[in-house]
């Protein structure tokens, strides 16, 4: 019942976003039917296009899960983009450094990405839990550190530059490649990993004592503390898991699609995860659908771009509008919560 209502709200929001988008499309002198036709065709018209949608949805699902697991603990992981980068880089590093048998190599690479992503979550988690540093700021700062660090790693003159023109590492060993799920498409087994991980996150949050404690901390720190929960440790755990999820997403993306780390591999998947997590109402199964929606928008956007019926800036405006309308109600709640927390914090300080 509640699900139906939420779906109704989301459906309405998507329509509203597209409606406003249509007005802007028309106002800027582009053909509304053509743009929307290409948007739909780009995302769904055949197996290849739908594979594109799923391919786009995969990293967004990882980062949405990353955002929402921290959010469930009352924390804001704004740094999924950086965790994605650093996880992706170290997965690639393990991919071109080690020589291992086929499946093992891939697993090691994925674990490397997850572990380093986890480290990137641990730092802000620890700073928040032990030093009270605002994780909103620290995750964002660390995100830039990760992006710039990996950018330097692979740029010419950096220690891991592949020796070609582009800012890229060398190619990973073929044993480390995450195979494509469908030949002739970019869709890799990363999608299935993402689905399984979403189920695991759901199980963890709603069917384990630790998940219970994590949610309790997120709902009411003081009550959780009263209930014998080690709040600091739980917050650190949540941030580590958030980092692991995003890092794993980066690893899957690099191993499955790019087969070597390259700076421009993410068109902002980490940021999409914030929207995805909010659209999903912080529910892991909801995140699957949120990621599909965002993936479809991205794939459809590429369709509009390709067909040349509208400039890509307009496509980006369309995507932004839909996301904005879907997220808006949750965003207001979020800002309210944020202010409440700040006020509570301020009181404790003064």
């Amino acid at each position: 019942m509640r699900l139906l209502r939420e779906l109704g709200i989301i459906g309405l929001s998507v329509s509203l976003g597209l409606g406003v988008g249509a007005i802007i499309t028309a106002a800027t002198g582009h053909s509304v039917p053509a743009v929307f036709r290409e948007l739909a065709l780009g995302a769904f018209s055949d197996v290849y296009r739908f594979a594109n949608t799923l391919m786009r949805a995969t990293p967004i699902l990882f980062t949405s899960l990353s955002f929402l697991i921290a959010f469930r603990a009352g924390l804001f992981n704004i740094g999924a983009e950086g965790q994605l980068f650093i996880g992706g880089f170290f997965a690639a590093w393990a991919g071109f450094t080690f020589s291992l048998p086929p499946v093992l190599h891939l697993v090691v690479c994925l674990l490397f990405g997850a572990a380093v992503g986890g480290l990137w979550g641990f730092i802000p988690g620890w700073l928040r839990a032990r030093r009270g540093a605002n994780e909103f700021v620290t995750t964002m700062m660390l995100s830039y550190v990760a992006i710039l660090l990996t950018q330097w790693f692979v740029s010419p003159g950096g220690p891991f530059h592949g020796g070609r023109m582009a800012a890229r590492t060398v190619r990973i060993e073929s044993t480390a490649e995450l195979p494509r799920l469908l030949a002739g498409t970019q869709l890799s087994w990363g999608l299935l990993i993402a689905f399984i991980v979403a189920l695991l996150v759901w199980y963890f949050l709603f069917r384990t004592p630790r998940g219970y404690e994590l949610r309790a901390v997120g709902q009411r720190e003081t009550a959780a503390e009263y209930g014998g929960v080690n709040v600091a440790r739980t917050q650190i755990l949540a941030m580590v898991l958030a980092g692991v999820l995003a890092g794993l997403g980066g690893a899957a993306e690099i191993l499955g699609i790019h087969r070597g780390f390259t700076v421009g591999f993410s068109p902002g998947y980490g940021w999409d995860g914030i929207a995805g997590g909010l659209i999903a109402r912080a529910h892991p199964i909801g995140a699957v659908f949120a990621a599909l929606l965002m993936g479809a928008l991205r794939a459809g956007g590429a369709g509009v771009d390709r067909a040349g019926v509208a400039p890509r800036d307009l496509v980006e405006v369309l995507q932004g509008l839909v996301i904005l309308f879907v997220v808006a109600p949750e965003l207001f709640r979020l800002v309210g919560r944020w202010r409440l927390r700040r006020r509570a914090h301020g009181r404790a300080q003064s």
Binding site: R220, T222, A223, A224
Partner: peptide, 9 residues
């Protein structure tokens, strides 16, 4: 509300 219960639970 602050300690005894997690209201949304």
């Amino acid at each position: 509300h602050r300690r005894g219960l997690v209201l949304n639970f």
